[in-house]
Design a protein around this nucleic acid. Structure first.
Lengths: 302, 302
DNA sequence: AGTATTATTGTCTTAAAGACAAAAGTTATT
DNA sequence: AATAACTTTTGTCTTTAAGACAATAATACT
């Protein structure tokens, strides 16, 4: 029995929920899949699928098995790609996942340059603030803030991700410039929301953390929109220095400085990391992109 | 092409270093292996093996590929065992790896009991202080001291692993009872050696660590031998409280107490952990053993 | 209830792996 | 240096397993 083929069939049947649909993706008759999956079940001594003519569902062990083999087949595929592309020029589809805000401001311009450099690499870029599970999905490179990666994933710090409080001159004129961090509690807040929830205003005084968040005006994960609102004088915003840079330069917003520095998390080493799977660095396209991005962004940050 | 079969052939060829030897383990002619490996190499577009008639060696990519697929095939095998044994009574070979000293004193008596409880489980117990790479090898359960496991491995703390200094009454009469930890520097040392090297005598005074190791008489990883020497009054020994318990009770050795407690590592949470792979807990024999050992040892520790 | 869809089963065909013998290439020994 | 011993590869045939296609059985929707 071609075990691996049977497993691939099984996986596809689970994913499509149908023998017929799965069969069509392999260009073989459904009967083949049916037979192979039965073979597999016999060899395992367990039924993996509950078949009703209308839909195919996983059994309890089937679910366990599916989770395992899905990942295993994925790994195998990656390993084959590593060998196949070993010592060739960078080429093929490269999928990058980035935080939304970072993508707009910094990543996209760089990718244009990257594209010109490696025309044989087809970029597949998606923006999302969700913490994608690198390795599970087929994302080659992910860019995320403040991340604790697992052992198989390598993280390179690209740049700091310092959050600073800002407000428009108009707002400060009307409501006064807060002299002490504690005073922020009486100011209107425009809150940035990460996948982990809204970011509070925190402040460390005498080794003690205080939440100095003021009443919320809006909460959003859309940085540009929040910045607009801040410019309109609707409240105080805490966002990353690099996202606010253009507004600070134009004077539309100004940074608030306090004796006790503000933060949005007690975890001090907030930074932006580039993540990739260790083994995948052997694939030329991945190596090219990692090296390029790290070099470009680290230089820019200086 | 039966990819998986080809990969299994390839792995065996690498392990045995010979097509002929590998072929005999599969009970097929060597020509089959030769053909399948060539197929595999063709499909990957790379040569994996450097064949000279006398020995077969891996190429550079071959080495990378071998590391990958060896692990992948292992995972697949484990996954199949999980399914096959799902909801059956605990049975089959169970391999346990334990630290030497812990094995003698605590584990073996328990395993006799375990064996009586689950006669269908064939125990394969090996003792070694080397840090075995759980998952890479086929060890189901490992027992180790002070371990930082990876994400796929679960660690359950079985008991504390407190090191205490002891000496025989004779030794103390002859050399005097050290009044302060610092005084140990002038005492003969019997040093216990872990895979990470000999264990120094450390002592924390005013938030500052000091090495108070005295001149070494012997260094060994054999706890029983060191204990004997300590009984003979040859020096001061630091070993685990549970290993020394019988000598302390009989009065052959006595514990030295200091204002500033001694340790053999700055890492405070030294303890003995039971380690196993998360997924493998689904295999009845593994679950039975983990549950049994945890329960028994935790109860004994009270 | 009837129809359409879907999985399974039966039978034949095709493709791929195994068996066995022979050849080619290496290393070690005489 | 040449031969002997061993190992991998190649050639040819046989056997085994997967694919093709039609037919059947079973289920859900109209």
């Amino acid at each position: 029995m071609d075990q691996l083929r049977a497993i691939r069939y099984f996986i596809k049947v689970v994913e499509t929920g149908s023998f017929t649909k799965a069969a069509s993706t392999f260009n073989v008759p459904p009967s083949s899949l049916s037979r192979r999956v039965v073979d597999l079940e016999k060899s395992l001594g367990a039924t993996l699928l509950k078949r009703t003519t209308r839909l195919v569902k996983l059994t309890e062990v089937g679910q366990i098995y599916y989770n395992d083999v899905q990942q295993i087949v994925n790994q195998l595929e990656q390993s084959h790609e590593t060998v196949r592309s070993y010592q060739t020029t960078p080429m093929g589809r490269l999928s990058i996942s980035s935080m939304v805000s970072f993508g707009d401001k910094i990543l996209l311009p760089l990718l244009d340059e990257f594209n010109a450099l490696y025309p044989e690499i087809i970029l597949d870029v998606s923006f999302s603030d969700e913490l994608s599970t690198l390795g599970r999905d087929d994302v080659d490179i992910a860019i995320r803030g403040g991340y604790a990666p697992n052992e198989r994933v390598l993280a390179i710090k690209l740049m700091d991700n310092e959050f600073i409080p800002v407000a428009s001159p108009g707002y400060l004129q009307q409501h006064g410039v807060p002299s002490h961090a504690m005073a922020l509690k009486h100011h209107n807040g425009l809150y940035f929301k990460t996948p982990l929830g809204p970011t509070p205003w925190l402040c460390k005084v005498d080794e003690q953390w205080h939440d100095v968040s003021g009443p919320a005006v809006v909460i959003s994960n859309n940085g540009a929109w929040l910045s607009k609102k801040a410019c309109n004088g609707e409240g105080i915003l805490m966002s990353t220095r690099w996202a606010l840079a253009p507004y600070l330069e134009s004077g539309e917003l100004q940074e608030l400085k306090f004796e006790h520095q503000l933060a949005v998390t007690q975890n001090s080493n907030m930074a932006i990391y580039l993540l990739y799977q260790k083994q995948r660095y052997l694939v030329p396209k991945v190596k090219a992109a990692v090296d390029f991005l790290v070099q470009k962004i680290k230089v820019e940050a200086d």
